Simulated scan of single mutants.
Amino acid sequence: MLFVAFAILITVGLAIAISADAGAVFGLTQAQTASAIPLVVIGTLLASALVGRRHRLGEILSGFLVWLAIGAVLILVYTYRGDLQRMGQRIVGALQPGVAIVDRQSGNVHISRSFGGSFRVDSVVNGVPVPMIFDTGASAVVLSLRDAQAAGIDTASLNYSVPVQTANGEGRAAPIRLKTIEVGNILRHNIRAFVVEDNALDTSLLGMTFLETLSRYSVSQDSLELHN
């Protein structure tokens, strides 16, 4: 039991040493608290050797080294917690292409390239999830008929008078205004868009009427970054 208490004390002590606020609880600065930790550890080690005679010194020392290594790992994780968080976000994005990963520090949105080579973006239109393809060649946001209906747009009353060229060939589109469109933490209101006729488009397009509202966007080999 004494050895367990000793191990817990080391772990807690290391956590206190890296916390600027915890030291103030004891009236010490962070530097003073960190300096006191080795003395506490040595004192506890000697007490363990004297009181717990049934434990050999070698066992105590080996246990001490194990917990010291654990403490060092905790310090390392704490020091690089921001980098590790961003790494975790990138891994999630790579495993789930299209998911908008928001960088908490910069507020930028990162999206990983999908397995097909394009950037699939999980957007929200009028409060409804609508998957889109990032397309700088599209002059506006373009919704398929199915996605427009899902977003609550009365497609039957639209005037399909604008000729458009899509991946499925020539078609016609109707101009509309979207109440809201959201990607990650980026929210825009009253965005000009088009709805195409049925079967004219397989997937909606995230075009320039949304992209031009951003401060900038950048494309690398495997990721898309949107700046609010």
Rank of each mutant, 00 (worst) to 15 (best):
S157V: 07
L158E: 05
L84H: 09
E59S: 13
S161F: 02
M87K: 11
Q32C: 05
L74H: 02
D83A: 15
Q96T: 15
V164R: 08
A69Q: 07
L61E: 03
V102F: 06
Q149M: 14
P129W: 01
G98Y: 03
A151E: 02
V77C: 11
I70D: 01
S139I: 03
S118M: 05
V128Y: 01
V92L: 10
P163Q: 10
E170H: 09
S118C: 03
G116W: 04
L145M: 11
L65K: 06
L61Y: 09
S161H: 02
A72H: 08
Q32N: 11
I70E: 02
N159Q: 15
N168K: 15
S123R: 00
R86D: 13
L76V: 14
Q105R: 12
L57Y: 07
A31M: 06
L46K: 07
S112P: 01
T79I: 12
V162W: 00
S139H: 09
G93T: 07
I133S: 00
I37S: 01
E170T: 13
V73F: 15
T155Q: 11
I133C: 00
A36P: 00
L61V: 14
G171I: 09
F64K: 07
Q96L: 14
A140I: 08
V141F: 03
I37R: 00
N168G: 07
